[in-house]
Write a protein that binds this DNA or RNA. Structure first.
Lengths: 343, 343
DNA sequence: CTGAAAGCGCTTACAG
DNA sequence: CTGAAAGCGCTTACAG
């Protein structure tokens, strides 16, 4: 009824007064405590609605209550996969009434990493969700102080010791194998690989690629280790372009694929006529490259939502929720791949 | 000296005991209050260091102290410019000891926008930094409750009423004019424009483009309004490809340019031989497209750092800092532009 | 310049 | 099932 946008904060005591109960009874209904009469509960809820009461996060935190906040530890929000995952996490968290913080690990000096993680991992700051698809993420995970709730987004084959917490695993090993088989079935004698950095020595993508090759009875060429950037893909591509026998390349992500295609182009090798290139991720641009990129689609935002859902489950096991959807990476065939041109 | 990683939180009172003063004297030195003897100040600082004391954010907030936290309101962290700006903000904020929160506006329903902004704009949650390069950002800005510290990142010509707060203005009008002149000087009779959404009706980029055309005495063709995505650029590009007189296109961002190039390519019009295309932003991929994209480089991360620096100045005017660097967008000439081919 | 008091808005035991 | 008490760790007036 009353007050639109008034400044005075309405507190638990105001609610208590209106409902005709004590303030800790109000606290009980807020926290879903079972021992409250249906009748009083209703009166309190009514008063809450009437006054537009919203509990103060800071007071709750100070008093030792449950915080409803999550800080996401992420390498670099400017990179597509991370930014998209963050977007998904934030949406899911907000829907559940959680505040979300960020800490971008790429810009913290290695010697400060532990201290930084300890700082954001303050119990009163809520839970942690770490995106640990890379080395710095794994390091951060291991720097999390004991006692704080944490979940991770990690590779399926995350480095031992495995993430010491509930984890959403991105299994792209199978997808990499699938993409490799696809290329093999097109008639390529073998498939080369340009690898992104991994949290472990060997990424899932490398594993899957190697497995598919082994299953087909072909020996795997040495993978080319790259970073995440188009530039790094370009450099790898120059090396690959020199190999006359190279007719198919599976790249660890789309940026790498872009660089590889560019290098191939400069070297006079046509894609896909001379060389097929397959990427990973399906960034929104991939369909508009020339040639449009064949790639493995990943649902990063969905992965982010799943990550938060898992965290929510850890924090509030009572609530029943819809189960996590299994997110299957999907091969999207476009123009950058095709059968090898027999000379 | 003592305690590595112990759980017991050390409080202001512990520091007071060790320093032999009262706890509010400790509070004074923490907050840089002037009325403290140099001697006591030193004893307190020593005790702080010895105990590894770090003030509790939540207690400070509850008691009404200065919060040292900033929430950034951003449309979509998966888009490059936003993600990169966030990365810069976060780094600067962390260096200054600020916690950073995010709120992704793209995923909040329009009818919830005001309530959402009001929630994250709780005074006890710290300051707000809103990235208002688009409509939803501007809306959020106007939904900020009075009394909370806020700065914005906005277009130079942001819609009236102008952002009601200190603002870092991205002046790309000049850059757009420069790019347009560049195309004109190459010999193109006119330059078409594919526009990104704007916080106002007309983006700075449109203004600059139009101005340059006017200065050269050529009438501006109708700009094509698009969104941010490659797909939307593609659609605009199809329309443009139909115009036989179109020989130069300035795009509002690189994603749009990518789509335009693709559409032109499909229509059999070569870039840059038949049509020159210039983008905006210089995403990390732009140099690796085929053709490599001529574009206007923007330093989003730097803009983010500037935004935080401005906020810091607003919050703590005392501290002298290095002045904000003027960030000049820069035209990067690559392969997608050239002189028109005279028939 | 420095200390004793009260309070920010909640929650957790402890009693009824 | 519900209420009176104490306290989370700080800061802001108020006194000395």
């Amino acid at each position: 009824m009353s007050g639109h946008g008034e400044q005075r904060k309405v507190s638990i005591r105001d609610v208590a007064r209106v409902a005709g109960v004590s303030h800790q009874t109000v606290s009980r209904v807020i926290n879903g405590h079972p021992r409250v009469t249906g009748d009083t509960r209703e009166r309190v809820n009514h008063a809450i609605a009437e006054l537009g009461f919203r509990p103060s996060r800071v007071a709750t935190a100070l008093a030792g209550g449950q915080v409803k906040a999550v800080t996401v530890l992420v390498s670099d929000t400017a990179l597509y996969g991370y930014g998209a995952a963050l977007q998904g996490i934030e949406a899911a968290a907000r829907e559940a009434g959680y505040a979300v913080g960020v800490c971008a690990l790429a810009s913290v000096a290695p010697e400060n990493l532990a201290a930084t993680v300890a700082r954001v991992g303050d119990p009163s700051a809520g839970a942690l969700l770490v995106i640990a698809w890379d080395q710095v993420g794994i390091q951060a995970l291991h720097a999390v102080p004991p006692g704080v709730a944490v979940v991770a987004l990690a590779e399926a084959s995350a480095t031992p010791p495995a993430p010491p917490c509930p984890t959403i695993r991105l299994d792209d090993g199978a997808a990499a194998a699938h993409a490799t088989r696809y290329l093999l079935e097109l008639g390529h004698r073998t498939v080369h690989h340009v690898a992104i950095p991994s949290s472990s020595g060997r990424s899932d993508r490398i594993r899957g690629w190697r497995q598919a090759l082994a299953d087909a009875g072909v020996t795997a060429p040495e993978p080319v280790q790259a970073s995440w950037t188009p530039r790094s893909g370009y450099e790898a591509g120059r090396a690959l372009a020199a190999g006359a026998d190279v007719t198919a390349v599976l790249c660890g992500n789309d940026d790498l694929a872009l660089g590889v295609v560019r290098a191939l182009h400069e070297a006079g090798r046509r894609v896909p006529d001379d060389v097929s290139v397959v990427g990973f991720d399906d960034v929104p641009q991939a369909a508009y490259y020339t040639p449009a990129l064949t790639t493995v689609r990943q649902d990063f935002a969905g992965l982010g939502r799943d990550g938060f859902a898992l965290l929510h489950e850890v924090l509030a096991p009572a609530a029943r929720r819809r189960p996590l959807t299994a997110r299957k990476p999907e091969l999207i065939i476009r123009e950058s791949s095709g059968p090898p041109k027999r000379p």
